[in-house]
């Protein structure tokens, strides 16, 4: 008489396998804006060689990636772009906030710089430093791997049909049109203005 494993047992095992595979083949999407982007390039090139940890497949298209590395400060004009890219990435996905500027604004406590990207998108791992050394970024990638192996995607939303629109939600406050800050400019540009309604 064969032992029929119950439903729970089977799913746990598949999860373990899926998480193992996901963790060791993270594809980073470099959202490199400033100085940290150069350190990101240094991490991927000869001396530090991110390929040793299975994350060398850097793709610039958000559709192919599952790890967004925000490297550098994010300013007013860039926030909607960052949110759009984050929403375009398929589930499951993770985010590394690389450097002091992305994590907290760093030395740039000015009118234009967002004081931490975690105010606007979810972040999994923060890397301190200005900019962090490549070793620190590699450590962060390892931390993400550990996190993926341990908890996977808790909600399993990658199996659901996608409902969220691939663009940021309208502003929380209702503002007059003149007060809205619309990022990719509106003067005869390639993209349309956000559809606020």
């Amino acid at each position: 008489m064969a032992v029929r494993p119950n439903e729970n047992f089977l799913i746990t095992q598949l999860d373990w396998l899926a998480n193992f595979v996901r963790a060791n083949s993270l594809w980073p999407m470099p959202f490199a804006t400033a100085c940290c982007g150069i350190e990101l390039m240094a991490t991927a090139s000869s001396r530090y060689d991110l390929a040793r940890f299975g994350s060398e497949a850097i793709r610039f298209s958000p559709r192919q990636c599952d790890l967004m590395i925000v490297a550098g400060r994010v300013v007013m004009k860039m926030v909607p772009v960052m949110q759009r890219i984050w929403l375009q990435m398929p589930e499951p996905k993770w985010c590394i906030s690389m450097g002091a500027c992305a994590s907290s604004g760093g030395v740039f406590d000015t009118y234009a710089v967002v004081q931490g990207i975690d105010r606007f998108i979810p972040v999994d791992v923060y890397v301190p430093g200005c900019p962090p050394r490549p070793e620190q970024l590699i450590r962060a990638v390892l931390d993400i791997q550990e996190k993926v192996k341990r908890q996977g995607t808790l909600l399993g939303r990658e199996f659901e049909e996608r409902k969220a629109p691939e663009r940021p939600r309208p502003l929380a406050l209702e503002l007059a049109p003149s007060e809205k800050i619309v990022a990719p400019g509106s003067v005869r540009t390639a993209t349309q203005e956000w559809d606020v309604n």
Binding site: T33, A34, G72, V75, K77, F108, A112, T189
Partner: peptide
């Protein structure tokens, strides 16, 4: 048509707030 300002972070305004040694960072 170039469109810039995606990394405008107010360096010159900060330069008015920090002294000659601090602004080097």
């Amino acid at each position: 048509v170039p469109d810039i300002g995606y990394l405008h972070s107010g360096f010159e305004k900060l330069g008015e707030d920090l002294d000659f040694n601090q602004y080097v960072t």
